[in-house]
């Protein structure tokens, strides 16, 4: 568990996930639910795929053209939610969103995602830090009808 307040460590987390994104790359498999997240206001353009198994997230993939913030936050998210139940995943997303918008959140649940705790200082980058997370939420909403 990284120290919450050491910028150097937080920076390394982001760079690590940017340089070597986890679970990146789409697969050709119809059992995945797919969504394109193409922000109107920024350049990021991500495709996200999620495979559900009952109430579990079995797998998550993504690819596209995205900045360091968007890529790394989506990569970290993928690691956090794969294997979790939809309910657990939603709880994590909620905590992440709270962190981004400077509300109370449970850092333990977020693990490496706390690297984005200061995003509010660059308000125009909130979109980047949440694009993947919003995409996952939409897929979950869709799957639950």
């Amino acid at each position: 568990m990284p120290s919450f307040n050491d910028p150097q460590i937080l920076r390394e987390i982001i760079m690590d996930h940017y340089d070597a994104p986890r679970n990146r790359g789409l697969i050709d498999d119809d059992s995945y639910i797919k969504i394109n997240m193409n922000s109107d206001t920024c350049i990021d353009n991500l495709d996200i795929q999620v495979k559900l198994n009952g109430d579990h997230i079995e797998d998550l993939k993504y690819d596209g053209e995205a900045c360091a913030i968007c890529t790394a936050s989506t990569s970290i998210m993928s690691e956090l939610v794969i294997g979790k139940t939809i309910k657990e995943a939603r709880h994590i997303i909620e905590n992440y969103t709270n962190m981004i918008y400077e509300k109370d959140y449970d850092a333990d649940l977020l693990e490496e995602a706390i690297a984005f705790q200061n995003t509010y200082k660059q308000a125009n980058r909130i979109k980047c830090a949440t694009l993947g997370w919003t995409g996952l939420t939409r897929i979950l909403d869709e799957s639950e009808g």
Partner: peptide
């Protein structure tokens, strides 16, 4: 090696 939007944030800072 720096995505343009990441670059713009650095200048913003």
């Amino acid at each position: 090696g720096v995505f343009s939007q990441d670059g713009a944030s650095l200048f913003n800072k």
